[in-house]
Computed example of a mutant assay.
Amino acid sequence: MPNVYGPTVDEQTRCIHYHGPTDIIAIKFHCCGKYYPCYQCHHACEEHEISVWNKAAFHQYAILCGVCGEELTINEYLHTKQCIHCRAPFNVGCKMHYHIYFEL
């Protein structure tokens, strides 16, 4: 599994900000190429601004399932409610933050 940075609280990528049962993904940030559980973790650890993934890059692997350790493309992630590899459910509330990570 790739390194996940920030204040994580378990091996499934939950962090101090989001640690519910379905908070199991980490996002590879376009700006630095590092996986973080959330934008708040990124802000706490990096000194640069977040840059969003543009639509042309949605084929890139940038989502990490904390349950099975498999990566998903942005397109795969945006079009499912669970991991396409292990079927672990994702937090559907994350949609409220998509604009922080992805060009919509």
Rank of each mutant, 00 (worst) to 15 (best):
K95Q: 13
I63K: 02
C41P: 06
T22P: 03
T73H: 10
W53N: 08
E11Y: 05
G33S: 12
N91T: 11
C86A: 05
H97F: 08
I50E: 14
Y98L: 07
G69S: 09
I24R: 11
I74C: 05
D23S: 12
L72Y: 03
C83Q: 08
E49G: 14
C41R: 02
I74N: 03
C94A: 13
T8K: 00
T73Q: 10
P7Q: 08
N54F: 08
L64P: 07
A56I: 15
G33K: 05
L78T: 13
H30D: 13
C94K: 01
I100W: 12
E76F: 05
Y18K: 00
I24Q: 02
S51V: 07
H30A: 08
H79F: 06
Y61L: 15
F58Q: 06
R14I: 03
G20C: 02
V67H: 14
I63Y: 06
M1L: 00
A62Q: 09
T13M: 09
G93S: 11
V9W: 12
C38Y: 07
I25T: 15
H42V: 11
E46C: 11
M1T: 00
A57W: 04
Q82E: 14
Y35E: 10
C32Q: 03
G6K: 00
I84E: 07
T8W: 03
G93E: 12
I74W: 05
K55F: 01
A57E: 13
K28C: 14
K95C: 12
F58M: 05
E76P: 10
Y101R: 05
H42A: 10
H42E: 09
V67D: 14
H30M: 10
E103V: 05
H79S: 13
F58L: 04
W53K: 07
K81S: 11
T8Y: 05
E47N: 13
H43V: 15
H42Q: 11
P37F: 06
K28E: 04
K81I: 13
L104Q: 02
T73P: 08
C31K: 15
M1K: 00
Q40D: 15
F102I: 05
T22D: 08
I50M: 15
C94I: 14
C65M: 03
C68I: 02
H59S: 13
A57T: 11
H43Q: 15
P2W: 02
H99F: 06
V4P: 01
G93M: 09
F90R: 06
E71Y: 06
P2F: 01
Y35C: 09
A56T: 13
V67A: 12
P21R: 11
E46T: 10
F58T: 06
H42D: 08
I74G: 04
V4I: 06
P89M: 00
H97I: 04
G66R: 08
Y5T: 01
N91D: 13
H19A: 06
N91V: 01
P21N: 10
G6D: 01
T22I: 00
E11K: 01
C83E: 07
D10Y: 01
N91E: 14
I16C: 00
E71A: 12
C15V: 05
V67N: 12
F102T: 05
C31M: 07
L64Q: 02
E47Q: 10
Q12Y: 08
V67T: 08
H17C: 01
I100G: 03
G33N: 08
G6W: 04
F58H: 07
K81C: 14
